[in-house]
């Protein structure tokens, strides 16, 4: 008895619509990343169709090579070339979009009609060919009659790898500064201009962002201008609302002073509030002052607890 609905049919009617949806999504998405994800989904659906067509090796190769390697390469390039770049809707050639849509539709109809007329009546099934194992069968063909083609693809891959390295390689514009030269330059700058010879502060880590465009925070909550690359600063991406970041520091200091006033009977709160309202200049000296006061009144924190 021949079953009417086989597993293959079920797989086809599940994954065929998925692959078409992925392909359409790739074409219509405005953002390149959405397109790439749609295409990756479409490739996974195709891999499942390969599995239903008795091609387990291609099923794995499709996932590893296409969704694993090629799509990730696309995504990496996208990160460099610009994730945000959306297509312009201006037509360079008038009516090109409509003409292309008609052409694509007509092509689909013609291809489907051609397939429908040239009915393929295969006996179907790879049970005989896959008897010794699918991978073994593929290997006996690849390394048998097609071994020369296989060697050619090896040469092709090698040339492609070398070409990619050559294309991606950039010649340095000037001579590279050695460690000794850098040390000498930094010491000279320190002697002449008083510039800090240490390394620049790193970019900041926030609860919501840790990208390099976010500047590092100084102890009082203000931002360190030096921690962001000048290139990013010129482009205007390193904009952080400084006042909001200082709020936590301001609240902490205010609370500290109030507790101190309560304990010692002094009346520093209004003066400190004035200083906090004017951020920047006073902050650094004030941090020192607080630390001295804390050191001077050892018993106070213990008493509070």
């Amino acid at each position: 008895m021949i079953p009417l609905i086989t597993g293959q049919v079920v797989a086809f009617w599940i994954f065929a619509p998925l692959s078409v949806a992925g392909a359409v999504g790739m074409v219509v998405s405005r953002k390149p990343v959405h397109s790439a994800i749609s295409l990756a989904g479409m490739m996974v659906a195709l891999a499942c169709l390969y599995a239903s067509l008795d091609a387990p090796f291609l099923f794995v190769a499709q996932i590893i090579v296409y969704t694993g390697a090629i799509m990730m390469l696309f995504l990496f390039t996208m990160m460099i070339v610009g994730v945000d770049s959306t297509d312009s809707l201006i037509e360079t050639i008038k009516g090109q979009r409509v003409a292309a849509s008609i052409f694509g539709f007509v092509l689909a109809v013609l291809l489907i009609l051609a397939v429908g007329n040239g009915v393929v009546t295969g006996r179907g099934g790879l049970d005989v060919a896959n008897a010794g194992g699918n991978v073994q069968g593929l290997a006996s063909i690849t390394f048998g009659p097609y071994v020369f083609a296989f060697l050619l693809t090896a040469a092709l891959l090698m040339v492609a790898a070398v070409a990619a390295i050559v294309l991606a390689h950039g010649e340095p514009l000037g001579k590279r500064e050695t460690q000794a030269e850098r040390a000498r330059r930094k010491t000279m700058e320190f002697a002449e201009q008083g510039k800090d010879p240490g390394p620049l502060p790193g970019p900041g880590v926030y609860a919501r962002h840790n990208s390099i465009e976010y500047p590092a925070l100084l102890p009082d909550g203000s931002i360190s201008e030096e921690s962001v690359s000048p290139t990013l600063a010129v482009r205007g991406v390193a904009v952080v609302e400084n006042d909001g970041l200082r709020a936590a520091y301001r609240a902490a200091v205010t609370e500290f002073i109030e507790v101190q006033d309560e304990n010692t009977g002094s009346d520093d709160a209004p003066r400190v509030a004035d200083e906090l309202a004017d951020p920047g200049a006073i902050a650094e000296t004030y941090v020192e002052q607080i630390s001295i006061e804390v050191a001077g009144s050892d018993s106070d924190p213990a008493k509070e607890q």
Partner: peptide, 20 residues
């Protein structure tokens, strides 16, 4: 299952690729 369905799917995907 006859391969025609797969060929039609292949034709549709190819046309979408051309369109894109």
């Amino acid at each position: 299952m006859s391969p025609n369905a797969y060929l039609v799917l292949s034709a549709i995907l190819f046309s979408i690729g051309v369109l894109g």
